[in-house]
Every structure is written in C-alpha cells, then in structure tokens.
Design a protein around this nucleic acid. Structure first.
Lengths: 105, 105
DNA sequence: TAGTTAATTAGATACCTTTCTAAATAACTC
DNA sequence: GAGTTATTTAGAAAGGTATCTAATTAACTA
C-alpha cells in the first residue's frame, strides 16, 4: 500500500518488535498484546497499522484473530533499496582532480 | 541514529525523492529546494531530518551547503531485513496436517 | 440464554510533523 | 561596509500519531 505507509509502519519500536515475534510464528492478537506493557487497544491499533501497510495478515479462527507476517512486501523495500543503490553506481565516477566540483566555488 | 529515526525519515515522499536525486550526485541545498514545489525552509527541515537519520551528510562550501548521500546506513536497513527474514527461515516447518495450529481451536 | 473471554471501536489527551511566512545568520561581491 | 545571495532558525497553524479508559461486538461455554 505504498512505500510511505510501509516505512511509517516500520518506524515504531513496538511494531517492529511485533513483526519480529510474528517471524517466529503466527500469534493471536491477545497473545501479542500480552507480550507488551501496553493496553490491548494500543496493540490492536499497531496491528491495524501493520495490516494497512501490508506487513501482516489476519484470519479469524473462532473467537481468536490470528496474525501472520506477510513477507511479500519486503520485496518493495528491497526493490526501493536496489533502485537507489543502482542509481548511485550508474553515475559517472569523476576524473581525478575534478571530483565533485559541480556545486563548489 | 536508530532504526526508528531511520524508517521515520524514509516515510515521506519528499525525503525519498531528495535521496533519489542525491543518488545521482551531490547537490547544494538551494538546488534541491528548487526541484520541489515547497518552500526553502520546508526543504531545509527535510534535509535536517535526513541528516539526523544519518542518510545524508552536509559540507559547507563557501556560501553553499552541499548535501551528499551517506550509503552506510543502508546496511542498517539491510541488516534488519536479513535478521527478520532469517528468523522466519529458522522456525521449524510444521509437519503436514498440523500446520500452524498452535493458536487455532 | 446468561456469562465469560477475545478483540475492536470510540473518544479523549498529549505530543509530534509538515508546512508556511518572517526573521536571522553567513558568506560573497563591489 | 552595504548590498546580495544562500541557507537556517523561529514561531504558528493544521493535521497526524500513540496511548489510555470505557464501551461495544463477536464467539464460545455451561
């Protein structure tokens, strides 16, 4: 759902810790909430941010809601990284003695 | 300066576009500002967020301030990604017929 | 169906972000 | 040194985010 939403979702310790736990295996919402020193509604909110970003999926199993990691979005991050790093390597290496002088005096 | 600051800095279109331009070569602050439909102070602020996150560096060259990409932080992102994806592959693949049932009914 | 357990939604508060205009600082040019 | 150009800092407005408690919804259990 866009790199913006994605990076914003990743810019929070609690949310990254949730992802780390989900990487070890699926968990119910309450199980996740129990692992933190925050209220259930707060965790519920973080989960919805992660879901919005496509980083997790949820599935209702009886009275539980099981959350799992969605790894496909990590390709978006990797793709963005490669694009950027690719652009760097594309640029002409400046000849000796005139390195990076376009903007200087 | 921490993954939090780093991801937060990346969660903005303008800032990612600044990085993309810097990937092609160093630029003066004003040169960057001129490329956007935003005021100079706004761009100046975005640059300080990027700098705070360690994504760019600046260097005073006479009356200009030249900004350049700092690629070393990308290792932090890559490292985080690898850690997470590594954790996923570490987990025991469930045997057939008992897949992902720990939390279910 | 009344009670219990699981999870989300609503509403409030405090704080952080993005953006602006106006002012300040810093360096160059005559 | 007076003016010009480059950039940042200050201060304000609008909107977003993280967190809480209380209320609601949904599903199981006896």
């Amino acid at each position: 759902m866009g790199l913006n939403t994605l990076f914003k979702a990743l810019g929070d310790d609690t949310r990254r810790e949730i992802l780390r736990r989900l990487a070890r295996g699926d968990m119910a919402a309450g199980e996740i909430a129990a692992a933190f020193d925050l209220s259930w509604p707060t965790i519920s909110h973080h989960l919805s941010v992660l879901k919005e970003a496509g980083l997790v999926q949820d599935e209702k199993k009886g009275q539980y809601v099981i959350y799992s990691l969605n790894t496909t979005v990590f390709q978006d991050i990797a793709g963005w990284l490669f694009d950027l790093l690719g652009t760097i390597t594309e640029r002409q290496p400046a000849k000796k003695g005139e390195a990076r002088k376009e903007n200087g005096k």
